[in-house]
Design a protein around this nucleic acid. Structure first.
Length: 686
DNA sequence: CAATGCGACATTTTT
DNA sequence: TGTCGCATTG
């Protein structure tokens, strides 16, 4: 084992990989190879330091990142199969793993449900006795922020600074109680409950500390208080050296609004005084000019750690800043520029990316791209698992796994319609409330006969018997394992409820067909997991485990976009990605930086602008070779065109003389464009 | 009174 | 593009 740089790493990268004397923080600038450090370090732990792969955990924020990381590690190992023994997962998956084994320790039954944001939203709707979408969302985010900040309902109420917050806090209290009655947890609980458990139960905490000896965290700047606390609890023990590597970049912290706390970076230094801090400043992605602009912009933020990116890629082409007359022209010009450049440089379409602040900005651009016949794909589209037809099926699975899951019960019993209506459910709900039992249980409880007439009660009982039968079959081991059985049960379920004809009854031919297609895709996907085929743990999963896993999925993996298309993405969704040619559009005051709440407290405005600045920084650093920034003098808002100013961030870029002032756009006239196109078409491609 | 339809309008998003 | 609220209709 040598101390010299190896594996083709640079000096600080290699240092970060080799450092194992204690806790380690890697400050990895954009494009500095942070994922390489994590993957190489894991390989190093296994190959050179004799770590058992089962005792190493790498934590990410998305399933996609986890999957990617695991694949990359497998390629580095002499025995790639060892990668399967690692825990490479999201924080939330780790939480489920812990809760599954320790459910009793936090007052949960072995069978608990994971409720998605929609379910939680309707719970809150019931408790707030309001349908105001804004209000519900506000309460929901309040509660989520409290949970992520480890603030108990009582404390939240005490510290409430206005009536709105007090209302949220009161609902928070009954929300927690309701979830517990359902034997359900929400996403935040997946991390909060393990924290609670480890705080109160030393032996269990010890057990997990022995189980996970080395921890690595990706995107550490995005962790919230709760996640950090979980890490701390896993990593610190009496007479034990904390062993972990956190990788992050304070300049790319863009999720404060959902509870992430960059302060966790600073806290790390005070909590672990012997923390080794290693900076990665060499950038392997962009030209020097792009990095200069990025450094200049971010230089306007107060810095937690001093850091300056540099690269060996040469100066590169100047950054262009184009002021457009309005948003229509902006979209048109971007489309034309991409089209022309694509032919000029003979690039792939996928070499281009258009980045914007808000999803709605994509609309105009989309139309222009279509008009120009430029293939495009929009990232972050609607999540497959959020589609109504998928959630319908999942509600049955959830109910099979946990009959206390009232939201699942309501959805399943009413979809497809089987003669159970609103009034029946209301009576059942009141009854179950009086007896402190689940809706499912209430159906068979003595006394319910007096409340419901046969026409209401019989379909309920038929439904519950149906679920009970399925449940018995699902938990019985099948011919070749439980996974096989889960798949079989699912097929029978779909047939028994006649879901396909339900879809054709409810929707027109085209919609029903595509929905049914989705259902089939989903069941096939589940069957693969159930059989352990594609699954990383290789375990066969029963209905309960499958259901819990599905709850944590947002995108369908492998559902890749068009291979050769211009990528359109929000700035947030572009983090971690890179493109040869980037167009940053709508860079105006009010959009980037976005104007927040007009009545937000003054002291928070500075922090907001700083986060917007980091967003700009993320956008700039996505570009490898060229970067074009556009802004509009006028923009459609409401009925009429509204005046706009270029973003302050444009000035902050301190561009080379000549491009510093926003240039008038050199509008390519349609005539000229036509001529150019003809010319291009006349030149035979070689 | 409920269902449908149309116009106005947009932070950012994962689990 | 998708949702929300308001208005019109059966």
């Amino acid at each position: 084992m040598s101390k010299a740089p190896q594996f083709g790493l640079n000096v600080p990268q290699s240092e970060a990989v080799m450092y194992l004397d204690g806790p380690c923080l890697v400050l990895a600038g954009a494009g500095s190879g942070k994922t390489r450090v994590i993957t190489q370090k894991i390989a190093h732990l296994i190959e050179d330091r004799g770590y058992d792969p089962r005792t190493i955990a790498a934590l990410t924020f998305t399933n996609k990142a986890a999957l990617e990381m695991q694949e990359r590690i497998a390629k580095l190992l002499k025995q790639p199969r060892q990668a399967k023994q690692l825990t490479v997962s999201t924080f939330h998956s780790l939480g489920v793993k812990i809760l599954r084994q320790e459910a009793n320790g936090v007052g949960l039954k072995d069978r608990f449900s994971i409720m998605d944001a929609d379910d939680c939203g309707s719970l809150i709707q019931d408790m707030a006795i309001s349908t105001d979408k804004q209000l519900i969302r506000r309460i929901q985010t309040d509660i989520s922020l409290w949970k992520n900040g480890l603030v108990e309902p009582v404390i939240a109420l005490q510290n409430a600074k206005d009536e709105d917050e007090a209302q949220s806090a009161r609902i928070y209290a009954s929300y927690v109680a309701t979830l517990s009655a359902y034997q359900a947890v929400d996403f935040d609980d997946l991390i909060r409950l393990p924290v609670e458990l480890f705080r109160n139960n030393e032996p269990i905490r010890d057990k997990w500390q022995r189980r996970l000896r080395y921890l690595l965290m990706d995107e550490y700047q995005d962790t919230n208080t709760c996640q950090y606390e979980l890490v701390k609890l896993l990593v610190t023990g009496v007479g034990k050296k904390p062993m972990f590597t956190a990788v992050g970049d304070d300049d790319q912290a863009i999720y404060a609004w959902r509870g992430a706390s960059v302060e966790n970076l600073k806290t790390l230094q005070t909590d672990f005084p012997d923390l080794q801090v290693i900076k990665l400043e060499q950038n392997y992605r962009s030209t020097t000019r792009i990095l200069q602009a990025a450094n200049a912009v971010i230089g306007n933020n107060p810095k937690l750690f001093d850091k300056k990116l540099w690269s060996e890629h040469g100066l590169g082409e100047p950054i262009k800043v184009l002021g457009m007359a309005n948003d229509d022209q902006e979209a048109e010009q971007v489309a034309i520029m991409i089209s022309a450049d694509h032919f000029d440089r003979k690039n792939k379409w996928s070499d281009y990316a258009i980045l914007y602040r808000g999803n709605h900005q994509a609309r105009v651009i989309e139309q222009c791209l279509r008009k120009e016949r430029i293939p495009y794909s929009i990232s972050g589209g609607q999540s497959f698992f959020d589609k109504a037809e998928i959630k319908d099926i999942i509600s049955y699975l959830r109910l099979l796994a946990n009959t206390d899951d009232d939201p699942a019960f309501i959805r399943a019993v009413t979809t497809p319609r089987r003669g159970v209506g609103q009034s029946t459910l209301e009576v059942l709900g009141t009854f179950s409330g009086q007896w402190q039992c689940s809706l499912f249980e209430a159906v068979f409880k003595g006394g319910i006969e007096g409340k419901l007439i046969d026409r209401q009660l019989l379909p309920l009982r038929e439904f519950c018997n149906f679920i009970n039968n399925l449940e018995t079959r699902a938990s019985r081991p099948g011919p070749s394992g439980s996974g096989d059985n889960a798949a079989q049960v699912l097929d029978d379920l779909l047939e028994a409820i006649n879901y396909e004809s339900y879809l054709y009854d409810m929707f027109d031919e085209r919609a029903a067909q595509s929905k049914w297609q989705n259902v089939l895709e989903f069941t096939n996907w589940l069957k693969d997991r159930g059989r352990g085929g594609k699954d990383r743990d290789g375990d066969e999963k029963n209905v309960l485990e499958l259901t819990q896993m599905v709850a944590l999925m947002s995108m369908l993996e492998g559902q890749d976009e068009e291979p050769d298309a211009v990528r359109m993405s929000t700035l947030h969704a572009s983090k971690g990605l890179e493109y040869p040619h980037v167009f940053l559009v709508g860079v105006e005051e009010g959009i980037l930086p976005h104007k927040g709440d007009p009545d937000a407290p003054a002291e928070t405005i500075g922090a907001r602008v700083q986060e917007e600045r980091r967003l700009m920084y993320v956008g700039i650093t996505r570009a490898q070779r060229t970067l074009q920034i556009t802004w509009c003098k006028k923009r459609k808002r409401g009925g009429e065109q509204v005046h706009c100013d270029p973003s302050r961030f444009i000035k902050e870029m301190e561009l080379d003389v000549g491009t510093a002032a926003p240039m008038e756009s050199e509008v390519i006239s349609p005539k000229e464009r036509l001529a150019r196109m003809k010319e291009l078409l006349a030149t035979p491609k070689t």
